[in-house]
Design a protein around this nucleic acid. Structure first.
Length: 380
RNA sequence: GCGAGAGUGCCCGAGUGGAUCAAGGGAGCUGCCUGUAACACAGCCGCGCUUCGGCGCACGUAGGUUCGAAUCCUACCUCUCGCA
């Protein structure tokens, strides 16, 4: 079986991999053991949120991200570029982005925060992240060309500063510590412009990173995946580098991105969908044979639908998760309708299990066409 | 039993004679949700008809006054507080 593996300080990531978003240091509604038992390999956390809540000194006092969250497998930390961008896009008075970095004061916050490329890297490393992501200057596809230009220039400059800070931090580490170093990923911006995407990707490759991410909002106004842009960007980055489709988590979109060569995914969608009662269902039990991705291979189950009131079936036939092996759709619907918190946990466990199974199925589908080889991705 | 007060849509609650549909919350329902969302946002939200323009019935119940009543009057029912 061919296996593409990312070796990290806290373990390996077998690619492709989906990492649930534990933005604030927790996958909402579930505990670390739930996440682990479902087969999740790693989590994505976010410095933008964590530096505010609970704050860096508290995180350090609690033994850093892994100890704090009771999670001893890999953690990728996001730089905060996207979140700052989203915040400021929604409310221009909430912050400002300049060449120096980002200053922001979220509503309700006591003080102003600031993030620079250097600071983002310092924080991520000090928190004990396994993969550090460069601070990027995010845009929306529909933003004007001038802004895309500016975003690309800034993202490249910031990436260089992140790399410098990253190597500086590594050098300062004591030699006696024989732990594996974290990886550093850069993010390719460029909005909807092929030339800018290429320019950004090539400049980042020149600087040299362990992996790359597709940056910017990955969907168009109608919610469709920006396939052309994603495919093109992946094609510019050599195949030996893993690529992270940041924020892509809808199963269909994950499949599409995987086929383009993306192997790392993170999103709040599967867990959020779970919380609002939108559950993922396999058309056929993935444990009973290879998944045929050609047809309608999965569907949504809306737990509130009246037709489920007396359903004694599990959410997804054959699913081996705690929720499906133990509880019926009818009971889960009841839990949701009466607002019991248990629903959030059970639903989240199921959707996360679905994503793990999806990754296994994607890996199997690759094995069916690839020549067997062991391919361990090495650091630059 | 006596005295005082109160009964408004699923819940809370404004409204004390008149303009269009009983204000406004909450709950509920629909939609939205992809590197922030148990949030926020948008729509619906008394009942019955409808040729989709409307029509009829609803403010504890039943009568009454009035051109017109959730609003005023009478009786009854129910609840709350106080006194026995």
């Amino acid at each position: 079986m061919s296996d593409r593996i990312l070796r990290l300080p806290h373990g390996e990531l077998h690619l492709p991999v989906f990492l649930p978003d534990a933005t604030l240091g927790v996958v909402r509604a579930v505990d670390a053991l739930d996440v682990e038992q479902v087969g999740t390999q790693g989590l994505v956390m976010n410095v933008f949120h964590l530096m505010q809540k609970p704050g860096s000194s508290t995180i350090h006092a609690l033994g850093n991200l892994h100890a704090m969250a009771g999670w001893n497998r890999p953690i990728i930390t996001d730089s905060g570029g996207f979140q700052a961008y989203s915040l400021i896009r929604q409310n221009p008075r909430a912050g400002r982005i300049s060449d120096q970095g980002i200053r922001f004061k979220p509503e309700g916050a006591e003080r102003e925060f600031q993030l620079s490329p250097e600071k983002s890297v310092q924080l991520q490393m000090s928190y004990g992240a396994d993969v550090v992501i460069c601070l990027d200057d995010c845009t929306h596809v529909e933003d004007p060309p001038e802004e895309q230009r500016l975003s690309v220039d800034r993202t490249i400059k910031w990436a260089r500063r992140c790399k410098d800070e990253f190597t500086r931090q590594l050098r300062q580490r004591k030699r006696s510590v024989v732990e594996e170093r974290p990886l550093l990923f850069a993010v390719v911006q460029g909005g909807g412009h092929l030339d800018l995407r290429r320019e950004c990707a090539e400049a980042l490759l020149e600087i040299g990173f362990d992996g790359y991410g597709y940056g910017g909002w990955p969907l168009d106004g109608a919610g469709h995946l920006l396939e052309e842009m994603l495919r093109f960007t992946r094609s510019v980055i050599p195949a030996e580098f893993p690529m992270h489709a940041l924020g892509v988590g809808q199963p269909e979109n994950v499949l599409a991105c995987f086929r383009m060569g993306y192997e790392i995914f993170d999103s709040a969608l599967p867990t959020r969908d779970a919380r609002v009662g939108r559950l993922y269902v396999w058309a056929t039990d993935p444990g009973s044979g290879p998944v045929m991705f050609e047809n309608k291979w999965w569907s949504y189950l809306y737990i509130d639908d009246d037709k489920h009131i007396k359903s004694n079936n599990p959410i997804s036939p054959g699913c081996d998760c705690l929720t499906c092996t133990r509880y019926s759709i009818g009971y889960l619907r009841h839990l949701h309708k009466c607002g019991d918190m248990l629903f959030f946990r059970l639903a989240t466990i199921h959707n996360l299990r679905f994503m793990v199974q999806l990754m296994q199925a994607l890996r199997a589908s690759r094995d069916a066409v690839d020549t067997p080889s062991n391919d361990v991705l090495t650091a630059v």
